[in-house]
Design a protein around this nucleic acid. Sequence first.
RNA 1: GGGCGAUUAGCUCAGCUGGUUAGAGCACCUGCCUUACAAGCAGGGGGUCGCAAGUUCGAAUCUUGCAUCGCCCACCA
Length: 858
Amino acid sequence: MKELPKKYKHADIEAACIKQWDNERIYSYNSEKNEPPFVIDTPPPTVSGSLHIGHVFSYTQTDVIARYQRMRGKNVCYPMGWDDNGLPTERRVQQVYGISCDPTLSYDPHWKPAKINPKKHKHSTPVSRQNFIEACLELTHEDEKAFEALWKNLGLSVDWNLTYSTISPQCQALSQRSFLDLQNKGLVYSKEAPGMWDIDFQTAVAQAECEDREDAGAYHHIHFETTEGKKLTIATTRPELLPACIAVVAHPDDERYQPLFGKTAVTPLFGAEVPILPAEHADPDKGTGILMVCTFGDAMDVAWWQQSNLALKQVLGRNGCFQDINFEKAPFLSNHPTQAQDAYDQLKGKRCKQAKKIIAELLAQEGSAVSGKGKAMPNPPEPITHPVKYFEKGDSPLEFIPTRQWYINLLDHKETLLKQGDKIIWQPSFMKNRYSNWVEGLNQDWCVSRQRFFGVPFPLWYPLDEKGNPRHDVPIFAKPEQCPIDPMTATPEGFNESQRNQPNGFCAEADVMDTWATSSLTPQIISGWPENDEQHQQLFPFDLRPQSHEIIRTWAFYTIAKAWFHHNDIPWKRIAISGWILDPDRKKMSKSKGNVVTPQHLFDDYSADAIRYWASKARLGVDTAFDESMFLIGKKILTKFFNASKFVFMQIQDAPKDLNESHLTQVLDQSFWSLVQENMNRYHEKFSEFDYAGALDEIETLFWTFCDHYIELVKTRAYKATDPKQKLSAQAGLRLTLKILCQGFAPFMPFLSEQVWGSLEEGSVHQSQFILSRTSSHSTEHFKRVVEVLTQVRTYKSKENLSIKVPVTATIHCQDAHKTILSAVLEDLSLAGHLTKVSFKVADLDHIDVKMMPVPEG
RNA sequence: GGGCGAUUAGCUCAGCUGGUUAGAGCACCUGCCUUACAAGCAGGGGGUCGCAAGUUCGAAUCUUGCAUCGCCCACCA
């Protein structure tokens, strides 16, 4: 056992604890143990930069639960993962090293990534795919070391032997085997179709990764004419897509346009003849009620095109620029190819924003109308703001561009996935609505392919026909036992490497999987599926998934979907949704807003325990504004706990070490001990509902009662009493309660609790077990009555401006029953110097009334 | 447009399976160097629980409507 230091210095305590916990492997999970497991599906933080106070907040809440469960005798399996595959990492690597990936380059084994100054370094250096991946690995490795150090400083009770990284060979193998399993079950398919496409990253994105942003736009009112010369005016926000117009539609019930249905309209500038058709989705009240359908202006265009059998007029390239088109060679694009080419050449190579401006100018020119008389757009565009779809990590609006992608079938399983959500306990329960809402609103299957580099490759190839074109209809899948496999370097069975990219040979699928395709398997990464089926059966479904609410539609949803597809089971029994940290202006903290608070200086100034105290005060799902004064409160309580502990040690230093409940012979000590039990029972009740904040309230209340009242009442007896029984009883009360407080505080303030515990007992408090449902035959009444009198004595002294130590005489008016209780214990008050010469008067009162006066001098 | 949450003391938040004078911390005021702690301790002031109806013997708590703030989803010509 170690003595407490003279002063509370959190840095010393933390350093010592981190070392001790590491050395003694206090938090290791042992699959051989018989205790019931408690398995946590820890969120793997995205490794792209640094952690901020919001991470500290939510991870603390999980750790508090983990520590509690461990002290309840559970075999806690608490891993840590790093989500290092995917776009955020690529983007950061591009910025930090000033490079970009050019897959056509060959590997340079001598190249080493070097950090650059982004202000001086304007152009990025292209490197090969393998060099790029190596740069990603190097940077993420560096970040992960920093993350681990921070988590250890925070005191997360993670088993660091259970660390994974989503780009590791093991995770890649799992991710690929998951894909092959889904393929085997008929749940995946590839399809060439218009899908959401980010023109900057040049990759497909999934529905879950899109967000709407309010953007400035403008209605352009453009005159079309029918082949019979009748005019009609359409309204559009995307005039640049005029060359891609395939039809004009209006609502079938719209009487204004009913006569036009079946007729043919001619587009201005491009002279394309397009049908005028009825369409349910046209809103008569919006714009002019009649609109052009393009390939593709929005999701509605896509849906309508798919059922229309009309030709595709793809004008936008994958880079978001108007691609080269020869109107002579594509007669369906225009009936007046020369005129169309003239107009189109001005758009060629431009992005939508510029093209929009150019086409608006062209349409506003005299003679731009179809008939050649007047302007096709006589009025200037009418500015509006409207929601536009973006990739959540992107900077340009998404386009719908036809590409071949791999999909996982979700739409056929919506009902089942909804039901799976019902089987999970959501905390707080209203968060389940977010999930149900999302599942009900799903309108696309999960697009899992990404045209990127730092990710898990698809384990497949395509045979090439005699012309060297890939046969996408008959992909060659790798065998599960071959995973992890990179089809860019591995050769499919039945071929040899010389046939790569040759006619009648094969080619690799170059895409990588969506990062969520791997992240959605975090439970399986830990459980060891599919290799370690025994462990998987033991751990699955997990006990707890902690996460934040903005990724319910991605991480939670995909994890639930995969667990259903692979195991017909839920991934975890409970999901705990943490709130957000808001800045003092109540705005969400995020890197893009630049209002992020990094935690290290807070650790130095206030201690890890103080930060944890602050995080533990917030209930699940409740957003919390960042307020530095809260850390000060934590620090104050820690100092108080340290001082109180030191004082208790002074009081009990001459007592035997084996003090136990049988030494509690005095009525006040017995009564207080009962109060401790009542408090702890509530503490455990709260924790059993994962209400750690409520549990903290309980232990804190107990702590303050202990300091303000119990210690005050027994300290004199503990060191002055002549009767050894009386003295031992006080000492036992102090020691036993301090132990309970150490345990009760341990999940929240693990460092100081460990330090204090180390002065009382052998071993770590974090491996100690709570003793539940202690029952006490003693009433708490005695203690409560004494506190009542004590408070009145203090009030009296305060009002009379008397020092606390001035003794007073008191006459106590109370019921006879209370008199019996009080007289048995008032000695404590007298001993503590609060009262002398107590006399009683029996009165018919429902409370205790104390009349006091100072002891006359002399 | 659909859904969810919040609204309680100057501030941050508990309380909400209906039940005595609505709680805590911070801030504020008064006093106290008391043999753990002055970064401390004791005491005190401060709230018609967002608004309006309803159910009830009784509503911060349940129902309905409204307002304000925030979030999720949908719409996207």
